[in-house]
Design a protein around this nucleic acid. Sequence first.
DNA 1: ATAAGAAGATAGAACGTTCTATCATGGGCC
DNA 2: GGCCCATGATAGAACGTTCTATCTTCTTAT
Lengths: 345, 345
Amino acid sequence: MATLRDVAKRAGASVSAVSEVLNGKGRHTIRVGQATRERIWAVAKELGYTPNPIARSLVTRKTGVLGLVFPYSGAFIDRNPFCTQVMSGVFEEVVRERYNLMLHTALGDDWSTVEESALLDPRVDGLLLVLPSPHSPVIARCLREGFPCVAIVYEPDSDDVYTVNADEFTGGRLATEHLLELGHWRIAHLVGTPGIATTEPRKQGYLAALAAAGIQADPALLVPAGFDWQNGYEAIRTLLERPSSQHPTAIFAANDLCAEGAMHALRERGLRVPEDMALVGYDDTWFATMTHPPLTSVYMPIYEMGVLAAQMLIALVEGREVADRQPVLPVRLSVRESSGPISSY
Amino acid sequence: MATLRDVAKRAGASVSAVSEVLNGKGRHTIRVGQATRERIWAVAKELGYTPNPIARSLVTRKTGVLGLVFPYSGAFIDRNPFCTQVMSGVFEEVVRERYNLMLHTALGDDWSTVEESALLDPRVDGLLLVLPSPHSPVIARCLREGFPCVAIVYEPDSDDVYTVNADEFTGGRLATEHLLELGHWRIAHLVGTPGIATTEPRKQGYLAALAAAGIQADPALLVPAGFDWQNGYEAIRTLLERPSSQHPTAIFAANDLCAEGAMHALRERGLRVPEDMALVGYDDTWFATMTHPPLTSVYMPIYEMGVLAAQMLIALVEGREVADRQPVLPVRLSVRESSGPISSY
DNA sequence: ATAAGAAGATAGAACGTTCTATCATGGGCC
DNA sequence: GGCCCATGATAGAACGTTCTATCTTCTTAT
């Protein structure tokens, strides 16, 4: 690997001049004439000079690398379309802006590994946190130390924290309203994993829609489930063990994966979707269109959330101001077959 | 951020001593007495010293970071369970070995972006290439320059290249044999994307199984498709436009996603799986178990391939010898409902 | 003619590590 | 008393950049 000094020696110029010509942005007072410029370029090409980003980072204190931190629960990354889609959006923006992406993970609720590795690590310019736990100590620390950091899906616990969220409450409401419009009034909600930021607002949206329709929520229809296929499957199996008079006629699942699990359990009992049980999912990832029947689902702009978060973080890293610190992106309902024919149209 | 010098000054010791005590592995001749050791530790704790990996990398020429390069075709990362599962395996091993992972991508067939960023980039110690194009110039270059590099799913074009593959040929054979055993003899194969390393051997396995059964392959039943849902969907729609006397009775799809697309198209025409058409997928990702009916699929140890590739690369980076440069991992058939009842048992 | 400043350049000090080479001191042994 | 060597230490040269401070010329306005 040729260094600046190698080029300088061979071109008969100073290291400063070579640095300025090859890597400089004209920020400082180093002035190099046309002739020397050309000589330097020629030698650089000849020697195949390529700058060493490590040496550069040591002095500039910028690396051009962003850290992406995922919650880790064994199978989260490879099984949950939400995570991969966020990543996809982040990645796209990162590539566009000529940054690099470093992957980190938090083992379970233990974010200490992140603190040890990524946070204090000058190898990354900033941190993107996906689904951090509530009142995340990592975020608190970033804020305290002025380390650039954006959380994706996080209940803002301070005005200073940068977050990107979707309007989960409205999502829960839309899903439920849709089922109400279809004539259902015994609607179950498969509740997401407790502690994950999306769980509570979706549930509140569900409750609000019921209340607005003058229906008293039946606590027995708030079924604890989670965001995994297995969660949906087991929740429905348990639910169907009750006497059929207590069964709902429609289900609003925690997310698409959970909905598919539910569908599977329903099918096992010979119940048809949507004829015997209407079903609505959440997230509306690619996965929702390929179930049978295709899932009605609340569309969340997951990819866009990744892009936006990356944009915000890059702005922070580069010292630009971010107008909206806590944007909330709109959701909408994607109506497909799993919720049944639409009676109101 | 406290530096070695800060600690040294405050502890009344030399930078060398502090470096040895806090970060050294006892590799060289620096000897520090018990008393100074304790003083240094105390001061380090007091100042919250944390080593700067960038400065360290500059001198050691090791970063503890591995680069993971994915093929990029718009939606590959977030839609294809294969890629995310490889990543999951790689990630697991990388975390276990206390390395870090940097994500890169190759835009389409243009791996030049990789050459520009990752390859010559001293920020990574080695490169993990997922599904590189045949005769990859990147691999050739790594080999030439002695840069550690392991390819995941790659037809070895030299004895020196390190690859991790699954036994695709046997996979294609197993899938086809299974359908033959079930009594099918008009078996279509939805062929994968041309140019991807897995496409050809799977097809060859299919042809070999037919030949072994004394069946002459019908070229019309070799349907060009690809590895995406849409590919399977469209391939089957085209296929079903032929007169039904020319229809197959069974389909071996390029992968699970493609199989699900096929299933969708079949259902649209009122054809039942497996009663009217038996179906076998490939990869056997989590996705295969949640289709309806669940997919019979060739299990590929994708996760394990990621782990193994990472292990090999880390060994290379650390200068250890790798016994088997081109391991081929075994596959097996996961029989589920989409292929129909098993007549031979 | 001369001061002022522009143009073209360079030396060398950082950045925070690792690690080689070197230097003291003191104890044990002949 | 002198020699050897173990023990405890340090100075300072790398690593490859960026960038401030400084030094020559040469032009140009007064």
